[in-house]
Design a protein around this nucleic acid. Structure first.
Lengths: 135, 135
DNA sequence: ATTAAAGTCTATTTAGTTGGTAGGGTAATA
DNA sequence: TATTACCCTACCAACTAAATAGACTTTAAT
């Protein structure tokens, strides 16, 4: 399951996609429109900024905005930034790989199954982009 | 990510698949062979029994054993019993569905994406069975 | 230069889950 | 009838998620 934080991130991104290339959007506006606790939202947007998905402008007329064309940002990227691994086991994760203590990956049925699952998940999550959020 | 509990469950099931139709297997044997804390393992096996995947026999010569032919038990079933939902959002879960507060499922891009992901996950997890664990 | 708008940072709280431990009770079978 | 081995209850420490509070800094318009 995606964390609530990640779900909030997607809701917020919906707003920013709609307003892509129309200047910064206030945190408070996103919070109000999507019913996200403002301070919690603040930390989410900050995280997305640190990871190079968003940028922000301070002062009057400031706010958050997308750096890249929404069609260039895969859904998978957002999940990894906010939630972490997408795979169901550490030993099959591409970005958060950890060796399995109790299984020899060469002959582990579970490992093989989860590799398949990961590939089929990523086939979708790497192809779908932020633009698909407001389809 | 699957919980450690679920990973233990699969490790334990590997043993029971190998010994299918060869009588009960002691908790202590599974614990030793798979290096699973015995009391924690106890609770996992009990849960699998309550859900109709395993049965047990008490007394001398007792232990746990599979009820059904391993090829009849999909991996998805084990995950649902021990871990809960497989889907990435409550609003796209088949067995643990919960309505989305902030989205109208009819026009929600995120919803549609996660439906696709769920289907592709299940295509694998419903087809692969316990027998594949020891492939 | 002032000021107010707006993002940034640190920290704390609350609640729930996970992983694991301990000990005793109960049922089945040799 | 004594073992063996499952069954149940309770507890705990560590961690994570979700949310809140408040002070600080930067920016831009006046």
């Amino acid at each position: 399951m995606l964390s609530k934080k990640t779900q909030y991130a997607f809701r917020a991104l919906e707003v920013l996609v709609e307003k892509y290339n129309q200047g910064p959007v206030l945190i408070s506006e996103i919070s109000r429109r999507k019913k996200i606790p403002i301070k919690f939202l603040e930390s989410i947007l900050l995280q997305l900024k640190k990871e190079g998905i968003l940028d922000s402008k301070k002062g009057k007329g400031g706010g958050y905005f997308l750096i890249h064309n929404p069609v260039k940002v895969p859904v998978a990227r957002v999940i990894r930034v906010v939630d972490g691994p997408i795979a169901m086991l550490p030993c099959v994760s591409l970005y958060f790989y950890q060796k399995c203590k109790n299984c020899d990956e060469k002959h582990c049925g579970l490992h093989d199954i989860m590799i398949d699952v990961r590939d089929s998940q990523l086939a979708i999550l790497e192809k779908k982009t932020l633009l698909d959020l407001i389809a």
